[in-house]
Nucleic acid binder design. Structure first.
Length: 193
DNA sequence: TATTGGATCGCC
DNA sequence: GCGATCCAATAG
């Protein structure tokens, strides 16, 4: 698979978030195809709305991993975007597991392939990612490679999840029909039936 | 230094 | 619907 070059990320987060769908994230022995993303600029829902020591990476880098810890128990991984000085990042929200599935099942404590990486906290746990990856360049320790080509017709857009402001922006993107995207409570219930 | 709430998840 | 559980951000 072809490695994604740094220039790929030097564009607006809303564009990069869509173009990342169908690419593969590889970390150690595990990999998965990106099926769901969200874009963050310096808007009110973004960590970069106010630049802090934590969020400065969104302004000061492009093509680097921004990994943070939330709710006392979960990690979220982003890739910083835009040109230097212009804040932006893409949150990776779901992967279709490809390689290392057995290890992912072990880490996640489930055999259900659809539950392994269907959420930002889940996929970090499945891949064994924590804040030690924060600030590393894409391709340094965790990699992104071209895999599938996703046309505009196969991409859906909705408001971002878990935010209170900026709901007018349809900056969450996912692969239509994928069984591996994160699920709402309602979707979760109907799937179990 | 103290307080508050979070780009989540899984169980009740 | 709610609790878990740590830490970054902000206020004092």
């Amino acid at each position: 698979m072809k490695v994604v070059p740094p220039s790929f990320f030097k564009h607006d987060a809303v564009l990069v978030a869509q173009k990342l769908l169908g690419s593969v994230i590889r970390y150690k022995s595990c990999s998965g195809m990106i099926v769901e993303t969200e874009a963050y600029r310096a808007d009110p829902a973004s960590h970069a709305y106010r630049i802090t020591p934590r969020s400065a990476i969104m302004r000061d880098t492009s093509g680097h991993w921004y990994v943070y810890f939330v709710y006392g128990m979960h990690h979220c991984m982003n890739i910083t975007t835009n040109s230097i000085g212009e804040p932006g990042a893409v949150l990776i929200r779901a992967l279709e597991p490809l390689e290392g599935v057995e290890l992912m099942k072990k880490r996640r404590g489930t055999d259900d392939a659809r539950s392994l990486c269907s959420g930002p906290g889940k996929l970090c746990e499945a891949l064994g990612v924590d804040r030690r990856l924060n600030g590393t360049a894409v391709g340094e320790r965790m990699h992104v490679e071209r895999f599938r080509r996703m046309g505009a017709r196969s991409i859906a857009a909705t408001p971002r999840i878990g935010i209170n402001e900026g709901k007018e922006h349809l900056w969450r993107f996912f692969v239509k029909g994928s069984a591996f995207v994160s699920k709402t409570k309602q979707e979760e219930r109907s799937y179990k039936k």
